[in-house]
Design a protein around this nucleic acid. Structure first.
Lengths: 236, 236
DNA sequence: TGATCTTTTGTACGATAGTACAAATCACAT
DNA sequence: ATGTGATTTGTACTATCGTACAAAAGATCA
């Protein structure tokens, strides 16, 4: 016997609402927020423009709901992976595990919530580039905790490294991560087909190894910048 | 005696045209292309909306002209710095010089063409995130040569490293570079004020050192992925 | 000064944007 | 079967978009 929902439960037909969310996510992530109209989204979802207003009130509300849907699961997954990574004994291995815990969830593919990490991360990249006000707040609120936890974990593996350097390097990591999802074709193009920028596994491996090495670089004491080598030397 | 221009020369009053270009560059770089209207630009430049149409025909034409203005000088400067860097004898030092030659011109500040590297680079970052068609072509045409020259120079300093790895890591470099210009405040926030994300000198030093270390990481043979360490280990 | 060309201004047009809202339709409990 | 609340549809309103274009203003030279 199938349970009969009490009619106040979520929705009778969750299909359309989900379809709109999925279509909006895809379109926003590839074209930016302002370039996509509500009518574009409705058409891609096979819905009526009025349906979008009904479910999400405004275009900003739709964007906000996409974030609400993803932030929880993704941060949860990262927390789990990070906790597991911190239990690795060897410091070198732990560093790699921590970085991987940060990177891997951002590359997961698929259409469901747990699997759509790549699309959502790309959306975040595009929104941060556009300087979107709506998402900047939610990002700072939701992701700064995760970032701090990640930074702390790195600091555990590299106790000698000043926190400042860790912040900079993890910032570079996020930038590289974003860009890999935004413009993967550039990798294929520059490598003349030898590498596939759209291959998530390759991207993860490359990004993890490069980032681990970057974190392991010696500290930059800003107090005494030892040898500031000029780029243009008159001779030699 | 001041030379009298023959009236067909450039323009009588270059001020307004330049003001529009500068205002558009600033607004596009901070808000994205689609979020900024021609009227916004005109108002910021103290001009009439019709003036934008007169000078640049269309909004796309205005964007294109911004790129035309900057691509030449920036690539020229990079070529000079790269040529100087390649003359450095010590391989380790040369690698750092090459990376610095790539990074430094992207951070120059100022309002003129030679100094506005940071604003223009930020614009490129935003445009690539928005997936803008107009700029994608001109970027691929204009910057791929520079990228290849840069990759070749890296390859000279690190002959053992497969080209594939160099492409990936230089891709990460560009992503980190973009992101540092797009969201500098995040660095200040995450470091709780200890670091200043808006300080170009710090950003350059941090980025160069981290990137050099990343390039120096051992090669990733994709043929035989040696020890693929799982992130989640059941125990230890 | 008057003729001519360049630049700026003011305004208007058609297209499309986000959103509101009433009517139609659907799902389901009674 | 029918009433009821949830959802979808169709449409319309207002604002703003990019762009066009004629008129005004400014500059240059005979």
């Amino acid at each position: 016997m199938v349970r009969k929902p009490t009619s106040k439960e979520t929705a009778r037909k969750p299909n359309m609402r989900e379809a709109i969310l999925a279509a909006a996510e895809e379109l926003f992530a590839t074209n930016g927020f302002n370039a996509v109209s509500v009518r574009d989204i409705a058409q891609a979802a096979g819905a009526n423009p009025g349906s979008v207003t009904y479910h999400f009130k405004t275009k900003d509300g739709l964007l906000l709901e996409i974030y609400r849907r993803h932030c929880g699961p993704m941060n949860l997954r990262r927390s789990e992976l990070l906790a597991a990574a911190r239990r690795v004994r060897d410091l070198q291995d732990r560093l790699e595990a921590v970085v991987r815990a940060y990177v891997a969830p951002a590359f997961t593919s698929g259409s469901d919530l747990a699997g759509g990490g790549a699309r959502f991360t790309r959306l975040r990249a595009v929104m941060s580039a556009e300087g979107n006000e709506v998402t900047r707040k939610i990002i700072a609120q939701t992701f700064d905790d995760t970032s701090h936890a990640f930074i702390d974990a790195i600091h555990d593996s590299l106790p000698h490294l000043p926190r400042t350097d860790i912040v900079w390097r993890s910032h570079f990591l996020l930038g590289a991560l974003y860009y890999s999802l935004v413009t993967p074709d550039r990798v294929s193009r520059l490598s003349r087909g030898e590498a596939d920028g759209n291959d998530a596994a390759s991207a993860i491996e490359q990004l993890v190894q490069a980032t681990v090495a970057a974190f392991q670089a010696p500290a930059l004491d800003q107090a005494a910048p030892a040898r500031r080598r000029p780029v243009v030397s008159s001779k030699t």
